[in-house]
């Protein structure tokens, strides 16, 4: 049974971004229309060979969904925490009788919801440009929830360690976005040299993009390039590892709230 306090904080967090669609939903919607139009139609139209056996514009959809979801989940959590710290109104929460776990789950949950809504918006935009058939629905939903939660949890850490707004920009633009772009959003791992394929495996985004692509389109680069021992279970293994990572990040979040890191003197 979720407490009234938890529901109040969760509701407040959700209302904050729902009521500001010009700042929260419109930008990713417009950006992704541009991505699909420029990369998918104008440039993609000149790519004759299917990428990994899939039409290029369709191949793009999962990566862009992941990019939008994790960026927005991270941004929402980090902004909400940091802005609350900056203007000190996070004290309203901190001086309340909510448990630290309730505080974290409310912030993370709301941010994950924003990330998922943006993911759905991008998928719908993609559907306008190309027909999409979901291949592994349950797996897709589970993966999306896990990665949205994971990046919301990371956003909490970002919001707690940031010292000014520039730090948030650095995290999002200079760390998160490049990792996603090199996470096989716009290309298939199978197109890379073996050396770069190997290097790519150290990028955690590869597993997220690949899992969502597997859930949405039924195609996994990892299934094709993974060693034989993992060939059958690569997507499930990715999901399991991401879930474990999410649990670790949430535990760190609760711990940071408990010791008051960035929150108390």
């Amino acid at each position: 049974m979720l407490s009234v306090g938890f529901r109040s904080l969760f509701r407040r967090e959700v209302l904050r971004f729902i009521r500001r669609p010009k700042n929260t939903f419109m930008p990713p919607a417009i950006t992704n229309v541009l991505y699909f139009a420029v990369f998918g139609i104008i440039l993609g139209g000149r790519i004759d060979e299917p990428v990994a056996g899939i039409g290029y514009i369709l191949f793009l959809v999962p990566g862009l969904v992941v990019l939008g979801t994790i960026s927005n989940a991270f941004e929402n959590a980090s902004f909400s925490i940091f802005h609350g710290r900056w203007n000190e109104y996070i004290h309203e929460t901190l001086t309340s009788p909510l448990s630290y776990a309730e505080m974290v789950i409310a912030y993370v949950g709301a941010s994950a919801v924003r990330g998922l809504i943006v993911g759905v918006i991008i998928a719908v935009i993609g559907r306008i440009f190309v027909p999409i058939t979901v291949e592994h629905g349950l797996f897709l939903v589970a993966t999306m929830i896990v990665i949205a939660t994971l990046f919301s949890g990371l956003g909490i850490i970002g919001g707690l360690v940031a010292r000014d707004f520039d730090d948030l920009t650095v995290m999002n633009q200079f760390i998160l976005r490049p990792l996603v772009f090199f996470g096989a959003v716009f290309y298939s791992l199978t197109m890379l040299d073996p050396v770069w394929q190997y290097v790519s495996l150290f990028n955690p985004m590869v597993y997220m993009v690949d899992s969502v692509r597997y859930g949405l389109l039924g195609h996994s680069d990892l299934l094709e390039i993974a060693p034989a021992a993992y060939a059958e279970i690569a997507p499930l293994l990715s999901l399991a590892v991401l879930t474990a990572l999410t649990a670790i990040v949430l535990t760190i979040d609760v711990y940071l709230f408990k010791i008051g890191y960035g929150l108390t003197d």
Partner: peptide, 15 residues
């Protein structure tokens, strides 16, 4: 939020 909602939220945090 408008101040009335701020108060509603604060009361909500207290259950």
């Amino acid at each position: 939020f408008p101040i009335r909602e701020v108060l509603i939220h604060k009361a909500g945090y207290h259950g």
